[in-house]
Design a protein around this nucleic acid. Sequence first.
DNA 1: TATTGTTATACTCTATAACTATA
DNA 2: TATAGTTATAGAGTATAACAATA
Lengths: 140, 140
Amino acid sequence: METADRLDRTQEIVEHLFSLVERIRGCYADAVAAHELSVPQAKTLRYLVERGPVAMREVACRLGCDASNVTGIVDRLEQRGMVERRPAAGDRRVKSVAVTERGAEVAREVWLRVLERVAALVGPAADDQDQLLALLRRLD
Amino acid sequence: METADRLDRTQEIVEHLFSLVERIRGCYADAVAAHELSVPQAKTLRYLVERGPVAMREVACRLGCDASNVTGIVDRLEQRGMVERRPAAGDRRVKSVAVTERGAEVAREVWLRVLERVAALVGPAADDQDQLLALLRRLD
DNA sequence: TATTGTTATACTCTATAACTATA
DNA sequence: TATAGTTATAGAGTATAACAATA
C-alpha cells in the first residue's frame, strides 16, 4: 500500500530527526554548561552579540517566553558582568540590554565549542556537505 | 581561502540545524502541551509504550537526568492515571513503571500530532524524501 | 558494602497576575 | 488607557546529598 509506505517513511524521518535534535541539543547543553550558563542565558548572550543592544521585551520575544522571565535571566547575566542594563533613548520605560566585552567573549567561546561538536556530529556522515546545505536551505 | 570557506559552510550548516532543531522542538512542545504534559512526561510515556515496564532507574537513564527527578515525573503521571508503579520480580528494591491503557492512548495521540506537524514542516522542502532519509540514516 | 528509590534542599525556567513608572 | 519592566507566586525540571529498604 502506497499510503502506508509514505506514512512509514514519514515516521522514520521524524524518528531520525528526533534523534538528531537530541544529539544537537546535547552538544549545545554541554558547551553551555562548560561556561556555567543555562540555555536561555546563552541564547540571550548570542542574540545580543548578533543584534547589539535590544529592549528587554525583544529578548523575551526571541526566547519565546514571557517578559517577566527575562528579568531574572538578565539579572543573573548582569551579576556575572556579561550584560548591562542601560536606559533607552526616547522612551524612559524601556531598558536596553547590552552585552559586555566579557559577555561577548564567553558567547564566542560557547559558539566555537558548539561549532566543533556539531561539525563532528554531522561531518563524517555528510560526505557531500553541499547536498546537506542545499537541503537545509530548503527547510528554512 | 579554502579553509575559511569550509568553516563558513560548517557554520551555515550548524545555524540551519539550530533553526531546524528549534522548529521541531516547537512542534513537540505544542503537541505535548495540547495534552497538558511536560516534555519529560511525554518522553517517559513514549518510552514505556515502546519498551514495556521498566525500572525507575532506566527511565532516568533514558531521560538523561538524575534518578531523583524520576520520582516526581512518575508521581505526576501516576496521579493522572497514565502510569503505574509495580513491584519488580526478583529484586524488591526495584519499582517497575508501566504505562496504563489511558497513558498509551495519550502517547499515541501526542505522537500522531507530532508526526503531522513535523511532516508538514519537512514535507514541502523535501521533494526527494528518499534523499533526506538516506542522509538521516547516515547521521545515526 | 553497594544499589534502588525516595526525600530534602536549592536553583533555574516557566506562566499568571498585580504593581510602578512612564507614555 | 496602554505599555515596559518588575515583583510575587506557584509549578515543573534539574542536581546534590542524605536516607530507608534491600541486595
